[in-house]
Write a protein that binds this DNA or RNA. Structure first.
Lengths: 206, 206
DNA sequence: TTGGCCTCTTTCCATCGTCAAGATTATCGG
DNA sequence: CCGATAATCTTGACGATGGAAAGAGGCCAA
């Protein structure tokens, strides 16, 4: 696929190689064990080579976080469409995609939502998530014929995001379902999402 | 209170001094900017002195996390009692205490719930939180005369913790209420907690 | 007093991120 | 085709870090 036909002085696509090795390294060693030199080592270049593609280590981490947000969006969209059904089902699907990505990339997920990666580009990635989320909440409200004020609508967006974010975060930390099988955890996650969705669509009735 | 009457060779209470300077440093520089040598510098001892009190840097961080959990428990208990009222109000109060601690110690809070600090002692601190949380959910269910199965009860515990944890986490990251005043954020946090509590106490009625 | 033990310092090492300078290769106008 | 210019990568160095080793200073009980 790629062409390493000549293993010459130039790597060919070092930037992508660093992103790839960096991502693996991140999941293996955690944020604090992450090392620029080890990234370079795995890409088989000298320890100073990355500097020509990323001004600093934080720049590489920011790039990883940014790509993470794109993947997260994709995962949410995919699961939401796969869920089909009404707006409420799609809101739950969005949460499933959210949790699936986080479970598959726990360290990256933590990095994405940590102050360590507070670059502007990363924040833009996060706002895409917010957009998806808000639209799904609005659609769920509409499909349930629930009329709410703008303020309540915003609260329901906060609430829905908080529930799915908090659940998967606590699962990744082992605070929820520490010894449960992955199957049991999925069921509990779905239950939490269902309770969240139900609260959202009922938010007008009181 | 402490006795530095002689600034001699011995510090007197270096362990506590390291914990204190470490905690400040943590909030100032973040988890990745945290440095054992800087801790020692602030405690006015040599850079190798901490080794006699903490085997490694991770040990110091674990100690900070452990103490953080104790403070978190205290904050939750205080706010819960201050809330008074029925079980539901106390559950909301617990969440207020949770959020208040996290807002006052954002970096420490993040450390406590990160895989970086996955020591046994720290996990025990977290289980105390779980205990408080579970009891409050059960009390809220009881005070609302809501009868639920053990499974649903467990789900409501997960759900309640996830909501309050996710909300404050997203607030600390600026994902929720990025430009709002602290006052507006408090209102939104209370609204999220209220929605959570309402869902919990209604969990039997369907 | 004296010997042992705890505390802290000094010194050293491997590793890290980053910078500067040089070597190598690609690109492109002539 | 060729040579200059830019892009890419290497080498070497610097200061800072976490940790280990060894020694100096102070405390306390016998």
């Amino acid at each position: 696929m790629n062409r390493p036909k000549t293993r010459g002085y130039h790597h060919g696509d070092l930037r992508e190689a660093l992103v790839a090795s960096g991502r693996k390294l991140l999941e293996e060693k955690g944020v604090r064990g992450f090392t620029l030199r080890e990234c370079a080592r795995r890409a088989e270049v000298s320890h100073a080579a990355p500097a020509h593609h990323f001004a600093s280590m934080d720049d590489l981490l920011a790039e990883l976080a940014m790509r993470g947000f794109k993947e997260l969006s994709a995962s949410m969209t995919t699961e939401s469409e796969r869920a089909g059904g009404d707006g409420t089902a799609q809101l739950v699907g969005l949460g499933v995609g959210y949790m699936a990505f986080a479970a598959a990339n726990p360290v990256l997920f933590q990095l994405m939502f940590s102050r360590e990666a507070n670059r502007l580009e990363v924040a833009e990635g996060a706002s895409e998530i917010r957009r998806l989320q808000a639209a799904a909440v609005d659609a769920a409200l509409q499909s349930a014929d629930t009329q709410v004020s703008g303020e309540v609508r915003q609260r329901m967006r906060d609430f829905a995001w908080a529930t799915m974010h908090g659940f998967i975060t606590l699962v990744l930390e082992g605070e929820i379902g520490g010894r449960d099988s992955s199957r049991g955890l999925k069921a509990r996650g779905l239950a939490a999402l269902a309770a969240m969705a139900e609260t959202v669509v009922r938010s007008g009735g009181r």
